[in-house]
Amino acid sequence: MSRVTSRSSVCHVGRGRTFAAVATVTQQPAQRGAPNTGRFSSSVVKKAVMAVSGIIMILYLIAHMIGNLKAFSGAESFNEYSGWIRTIGEPAVPTQTVLWIIRLVLLASVVAHFWAAYSLWAQARRARPVAYVTKKRVQQSFASRTLRWGGTIILLFIIWHILDLTVGAVNPAGGDTTPYERLIASFSNIPITLFYVVSMLLLGLHLRHGIWSAMQSLGQTNRRRERSVNALAYVVATVLTAGFLLVPLSIAFGLID
C-alpha cells in the first residue's frame, strides 16, 4: 500500500492493522463537441442523400446504356436517337428543354453524391486519428473497399466522357462531327478504349456495393431480403457494365465501323 494518494483515507482495523480506502475518482473528460442538430449534419442523412442521388444516377445509366445499343442499328439510327433526345416535348416546349432538365437533375445528383461522400470521408478520417499497426480484413468485399477512390476515378471519367463524346473537345475527330463519328473515332483509339473499359469495370464495382449500401442506408434491407438485395446489386452492376462495354469493344474489335 505504498501508492496511497492524497485522496485516500487510511482506516484502522483493530490490532494496528490498517488498510487504505482508495477513493475512485471518475474524471469525466469534457465532451468532445456538442452534437449538431442540423438535419444534414447527421451522418445517416448524408448516407440517405448518397443513396437517393445514386438511385437517380442509376436510373439514368439504364436509359443511357439502352440508348448506346442503338450503335448496333447503324449510324443513321444512332444519330437520329441523339437528335430525338434534343427534341423531346417539341413543339410544346422549346428545343433541348427536356435534355436540360435531365442534365440539371444529374448535375444536382453528382454534386449531392460527391458532397456526402467527401463529408463522410472527412468524418472517417477524424474517426481514426491513429492507424493500426496490423489490421486484417475479416469479410469486407473488394467492391466496398474501392468505393472512394473508384468513385473519384469515375467522376474524372464523366468529365472526360462529356468533353469527348458530347462536346467533342477532346475527341480525335473533333467537335464538328456527328455523334456516331465521334463514337467510332474514340473507340478506334486503343488508349481511350482502355480508359473507358477500366472506368466501366470500376463503375461495376461501385454499383455492386453502392446498390446494397443504398438499400441499407434507406432502411430497406433485413435478414430476409439480404440475399435478394445482394442479387439485385450483382445483376444491375453486371448488366450495366456489360451493356456499356458492348459498344466500345465491338468498335475496337471491328464489329461496328
Binding site: R32, S42, S43, K46, L120, A124, A127, R145, L147
Partner: peptide
Amino acid sequence: VLKMVAQQDAENFGGCTNIGECSAV
C-alpha cells in the same frame, strides 16, 4: 434515434458505409 446519432457523430465516430466488418467481429 435522432439524439443518439447526433451524439455519435459529435463523439468523433465515423459514418457507416455498410461494409459489415462490425457484424463479423
